[in-house]
Design a protein around this nucleic acid. Structure first.
Length: 452
RNA sequence: GUGGGCGUAGCUCAACAGGUAGAGCUCCGGAUUGUGGAUCCGGUGGUUGUGGGUUCGAGCCCCAUCGUCCACCCCA
């Protein structure tokens, strides 16, 4: 490898070509699905006060303890690059007084930052699309959130590659009581626990349940069950959610050990995972966080939401071979002689104005006709437009079909515009499963978003 | 933060037991003077990640460093 003077910073990456196209496809599709459920965009800053996260996400969480990018500004204020979106979202709701009237249903998209060791599916800057519903209690909105995520998987053609786990943490009080009971049980067994779990005994005991260390799991076999501490209303709430999911025929598994790593969750938590992408298999996680708004200084407000990891979903699309056909260009214009360039520049621009959304690339830099046609083919274009001295003399453009066998034609710009507007072939789409109507719809909505 | 694997052409990879680096793809040109995909021929392209060490001699061995991958951890 030749010595490169500058490289991207560790954990940060460039997405180029097909990777960039896939990431946008995933992001746009997720957004289109959120919008189809009536969720509205909220644009949030990348930088917040560090305290927002230590308060909101929790002082003892790994995110706050060791993964935050913190910085101080010129006045010494402690700031942080956002490690997640929910706390910002809640802060914005409180700050703008948006929780006084109707409930709010919001989506956001963008990069998050966590200082972690890089590995497949885990980068220090990563993309999330999140969905949050404020001011709505009850199981129905949680079922809607699950349904929304499920619709997203279908739209992307990866629904056969993800699985859903759900659990309930009970109310805040129940959780506190369980935490105390768990500590009481584990403390005599301290010697048998691994080092991490020992440390968590005082910082975040619930997370010990997640431990993969065999010895620790053995100790846990006799531990009190969170389910036994869940109070009757929370149990009824969870049962209601399960009934709704059953009716929707969304397959799921109840995992009593599922505990989110962020402190703000209460009652329902859920996580979609995809084993096909490796150890970092969580592609979407969320739940109810009724306590967060109050914790951040607002009025007690029920809320629920989730975030999807765009990078991981993109990875899964690759694994599942659910990548859309990449076709960055509709038409490619070859210019056979340099003296025709001014004419070609004008004609192609006229076409762009006559055909909204047309992606038309003009060949520059000369070269033989054969080489230019090869470029046209490689660009993925359906049509090659050819401009040479003859064409300019006749005030016409030669059109060659690259994807079907039809004789070449000679057309005026106006005729050509009609062809390019109406003759666009239906883009073939690899249907990775039973997703039919919905997938098509969402894909076209995503195209609309992308300005196609 | 911890452990392990791997860094050779733009990309994917070869190179025996240390003996002076090679292929496919890409790219450029030609066969085909204004018409793509196929085939054939030719060509460009390397301080072997970087720095040091051992050796007559290092892509190969040793040390350091950076990067990357996998796993732990954690999470989306």
């Amino acid at each position: 490898m030749t010595a490169v003077a500058y490289r991207s910073v560790r954990g940060m990456r460039d997405l180029v070509g097909a990777d960039a196209a896939l990431a946008s496809h995933v992001g746009n599709t997720l957004i289109a699905v959120a919008q189809s459920f009536g969720y509205e965009e909220i644009r949030l800053p990348l930088i917040e006060s560090a305290e927002l996260f230590s308060r909101g996400v929790g002082e003892a969480t790994d995110i706050v303890e060791k993964e935050m990018y913190t910085l101080s500004d010129r006045r010494g204020r402690q700031l942080a690059l956002r490690p997640e979106g929910t706390a910002s979202c809640a802060r914005a709701m409180i700050e703008h007084g948006l929780l006084r009237g109707q409930p709010q249903r919001l989506w956001y998209a963008g990069p998050m930052f966590r200082y972690e060791r890089q590995q497949r599916g885990r980068y220090r800057q990563f993309e999330q699309v999140g969905v949050e519903a404020f001011g709505i209690g009850g199981a129905a909105v949680e079922a809607e959130l699950v349904q929304l995520a499920n619709a997203a998987w279908r739209a992307l053609g990866i629904h056969r590659h993800v699985s859903l786990e759900i659990n309930t943490l009970g109310s805040g009080d129940a959780r506190a009581a369980y935490r105390a009971a768990l500590v009481d049980y584990l403390t005599p067994h301290v010697e048998s626990l691994d080092a991490d779990s020992r440390r968590r005994l005082t910082t975040n005991p619930l997370r010990i349940l997640d431990s993969k260390v065999a010895a620790t799991q053995r100790v846990l076999e006799g531990a009190p069950q969170l389910a036994d501490f869940v109070d009757a209303p929370a149990r009824a709430h969870f049962d209601a959610l399960r009934a709704l999911l059953d009716d929707l025929q969304v397959p799921y598994r109840v995992n009593a050990r599922l505990v989110r790593g962020l402190d703000y969750y209460t009652d329902t938590v859920f996580e979609w995972s995809a084993g096909a992408i490796g150890a970092q298999d969580a592609v979407c996680a969320g739940g109810r966080y009724d306590g967060l708004v109050k914790r951040l200084g607002g009025a007690a407000t029920p809320a629920a939401g989730f975030a999807i990891g765009v990078d991981r979903v993109a990875l899964l699309c690759q694994e599942a071979e659910a990548e859309p056909a990449r076709r960055p260009v509709d038409a490619y214009c070859a210019v056979l002689e340099e003296r025709c360039m001014a004419w070609a520049l004008a004609a192609t621009q006229q076409l762009r104005e006559l055909v909204p959304g047309l992606r038309l690339r003009l060949h520059t830099g000369g070269g033989k006709p054969a080489a230019q046609l090869r470029r046209a083919d490689e660009s993925g274009a359906c049509w090659a437009l050819i401009v040479g001295a003859q064409e300019v003399a006749e005030n016409r453009i030669a059109v060659k079909w690259l994807r079907e066998s039809r004789p070449q034609a000679l057309m005026r710009v106006e005729e050509l515009a009609v062809l390019l507007r109406t003759g666009a072939p239906v883009p073939e789409r690899a249907d990775a499963g039973g997703a039919t109507g919905q997938a098509e719809q969402s894909a076209s909505a995503a195209n609309a978003l992308a300005g196609n």
